[in-house]
């Protein structure tokens, strides 16, 4: 087993620069141990996708990513026949086909002979695997990230079910493809719509919220080792206060880091009101938010 216990998950994730809370580590440990997919929910920018990347790094597995969107279909997600290649091959081997049927006396016989060869054209050679098929036919286990699954259509969700429970897929011409290895599947959702009960039943659920201030400080310090202790504390306190406001878009972790980075670039080691106000546009991405926060900034620092 890749992880010994929950503590080990935390330690290994930290070695690839991802700080996981006890809850995250527990769910990840269970998912790996029981080979179940994880469905991650949470606000934008709290590290949902990052968790998948970190896991692929610390497990030393390839990360296969499928970004979902409206209109995503099997041909884009699972496999596609390479029609162009099939057609070109048919052209190139035309003589050979003529040879196969040259001594056929009747038309039905000729058709029979071609039929006996038809597997040649619907074989692995002409299947172009897409992320989902790649994930289960890879000889080494992979991490499969199905990002923003809430953006996909209900049809796609229905067809994910087979994959998520048995890790197998059915291609009509070739039959059912059994998995060579079981991937670690991570689905993320921003709650654009509710997922079906059937899908939820197959997954472990994990909600990642904005991190506790202490953990966030640790994250910023890890990403920017040179930063002064005082600046980090002030910065995170302010960010936490800003998140408490009613905004169109709340600042996420990457924005905390960007803010810290820009303050370091300005060679500041503490947060003052004028500096904060001048660099606020790294944190607030809408004009209306910016004005709102700037008004109350003096109380937050």
């Amino acid at each position: 087993m890749p992880f010994n216990d929950v503590k080990d998950v935390q330690k290994q994730l930290e070695s690839v620069r991802y700080i996981a809370s006890q809850e995250i580590a527990t769910v990840v440990f269970l998912a790996v141990a029981t080979e179940k997919p994880i469905l991650i929910e949470g606000p934008a920018g709290v590290g949902k996708t990052q968790l998948a990347k970190a896991l692929s790094m610390c497990l030393d597995r390839q990360l296969i990513r499928l970004q979902c969107y409206e209109g995503l279909d099997e041909a884009k997600a699972l496999y596609e026949w390479e029609y162009a290649k099939q057609l070109l091959y048919t052209q190139m081997v035309k003589d050979r086909i003529n040879h196969v049927i040259s001594d056929a006396r009747t038309l039905p016989e000729a058709v029979d002979r071609i039929a006996s060869q038809e597997d040649a054209f619907f074989s692995e050679r002409f299947v172009q695997p897409r992320p989902l098929l790649q994930a289960i036919s890879s000889p080494d286990p992979v991490v499969l990230l199905i990002d923003e699954v809430d953006k996909s259509d209900p049809e796609f969700e229905a067809f994910l079910l087979e994959l998520l429970s048995d890790f197998q897929v059915t291609i009509p011409e070739l039959g059912t493809r059994k998995p060579l290895t079981i991937p670690l599947v991570i689905l993320t959702s921003n709650n654009y719509r509710d997922m079906s009960d059937a899908l939820k039943r197959r997954c472990l659920h994990l909600y990642i919220d904005y991190p506790e201030p202490e953990i966030e400080m640790e994250i910023v310090r890890m990403k920017l080792p040179g930063i002064s202790v005082k600046l980090v504390e002030q910065l995170i306190r302010t960010i936490t206060a800003i998140r408490g406001m009613e905004l169109r878009k709340k600042p996420c972790i990457s924005e905390s880091i960007d803010w810290a980075r820009s303050l370091i670039a300005l060679e500041k080691d503490e947060l003052t009101l004028p500096d904060a106000s001048a660099t606020l546009n790294t944190v607030c991405k809408y004009r209306s938010d910016l004005l709102k926060v700037r008004q109350q900034l003096s109380q937050m620092i």
């Binding site: 527990t26 949470g42 709650n191 509710d194 939820k200 997954c203 472990l204 659920h205 994990l206």
Partner: peptide
């Protein structure tokens, strides 16, 4: 919670 409550809601 990971098993019984399958959405934030």
């Amino acid at each position: 919670r990971a098993n019984f409550a399958k959405s934030r809601r």
